[in-house]
Structures are given as C-alpha cells and as structure tokens.
Simulated scan of single mutants.
Amino acid sequence: MSAYFSQVEWQPQQGDAPALRRLLAGGGYGLHQAMWQLFERTEPPAHRDFLYHRLADGRLAFYVVSARAPRSDVAGWRVRSKPYLPQLRVGERLGFTLRANPTVARGREADGKGRAVRHDVVMDARRSLPEAGEAERVARAGSQWLNGRDGQRAAEHGFALDSVIADAYTQHRLHKPGAPRAITFSTLDYRGVLRVTDAERLQHALLHGIGPAKGFGCGLLLVRRL
C-alpha cells in the first residue's frame, strides 16, 4: 500500500488571531478538526486513514502518517509530504517515540450489554499500587501496558522492548460544539529502544498505529535508526 509521511505546521499570517482561537477551542478539539480538514476533498473522508502526533515543543506542529497525501492548500498550514514505506530488518534496533492512550479492561458495563469497561492505566494503578509515588505508577503501568503480559502486546506489533521510559501523563477534556458531554482520555509519552522481531507486523504498526484514541493524536509510532 502507498503511504505518506508529512510534517505539518501552523504558520499564521498577520490577522490570523481568530483562526488560532478556533484551533485552540474546545480544549484542543479545534486541532482535531483541523487534522481532518487536511484530508477533506469535496467532503469529509468516510473513515480516518491517517495518524498524527503533535510535537512537544510548544508549536502547533505535527507529524502525520497517512494513506493519502494531505492537502497543501489549507490556509495557515505548511505541509511537506513524502512517500513513506519503512524498510525493516528482523533483529534491527531502532529508537522510538510514541504518544498513546493506554487503557485496561476492568469489569463489565451495567447496561446489560456485557462490554468490558476501559480504564486509564494510571488511574487503575492508583488502586493496584497504592504505596507507589505518581512517577513510579506512571512508569510501571505505562511500560507494562506497552509491553503487555510476557511481551505479548509488543510482539503483536512486531517488536520487543530493549528499553522504555513512560512519562508526561496527561488527562484531556475536549469539547465538541453541541455535544452534551466532553470527550475525555489520557495520554502517556514513550521513548526508548525496540528490536524488530517481525518486520511485516511492525510496518503495519507504523502505518496504522497502536492503541485507542488514534483520531485524537494517539498511536503514531515513530522510529529512527540508531
């Protein structure tokens, strides 16, 4: 399949203050809408076929991986795209970063549908690790989620973790105009070194992401050669 890696950055012109306010509205919901707008043609796409990751340097700048090249004609945005098809080798060690929405299933919903309830792993760890400090809970619960039991989650995505740091725990509340309730989710930032165990599975993870909340800037796994 074809894919694209893009660098997208807000570069406002004089008098763009109203546009900036719209982007930052709703606790960040405006940015979510802006990312979708980059992939609209005559109408919104039927499904999301892109991932994005906001850089943690204070700018409105993003890395985007997508099945289609994003538009380059949306006012205020600078978009630079190139074809993206990672070439991977089993046994290769890669540095990685990831912003994820790690959750764990606990119990069942009380609506009679019997669905598992998803819980924020850090909030869950406050119950299972009551004596630990917050930084330790974040680090332990976050790394356990990414690795999975006996390394199963990592293996499903084609890698093994050689080292990992999980931090920057953040709770988000996004307000969609007209919606009765806020959209809530949490994120952790990961960085470390992984080892390729299955090149095809890891390539799929790089193109399709890891974990939930991908439509809100989570799940894009970024790698670099060491």
Rank of each mutant, 00 (worst) to 15 (best):
V104I: 14
D124F: 04
V104S: 01
L129F: 12
R140S: 03
N147A: 14
R149C: 03
R149S: 11
A135Q: 11
R126M: 06
G112V: 12
D167M: 05
G158H: 06
L85F: 10
L88P: 06
A160K: 09
G114I: 09
Y169N: 09
I183H: 11
R153L: 14
V138Q: 02
A154G: 04
L129I: 09
T97L: 12
R93K: 15
V117D: 09
F96S: 06
T170D: 04
I183Q: 09
A125Y: 02
G95A: 15
L146D: 00
L88Y: 07
G91P: 11
R89N: 08
T97I: 14
A141T: 05
A182W: 01
G112W: 06
G148L: 03
Q171C: 12
L174V: 08
V122I: 02
R99N: 02
A116Q: 13
D150L: 10
L85P: 00
V104P: 00
V117M: 06
A132K: 05
E136R: 12
M123K: 00
E109G: 15
A160R: 15
D111F: 00
D162Y: 09
V117L: 13
I165R: 14
Q171W: 00
R153E: 04
G107E: 04
Q144Y: 04
F159Q: 02
S143N: 10
A125I: 11
A116M: 07
D120K: 04
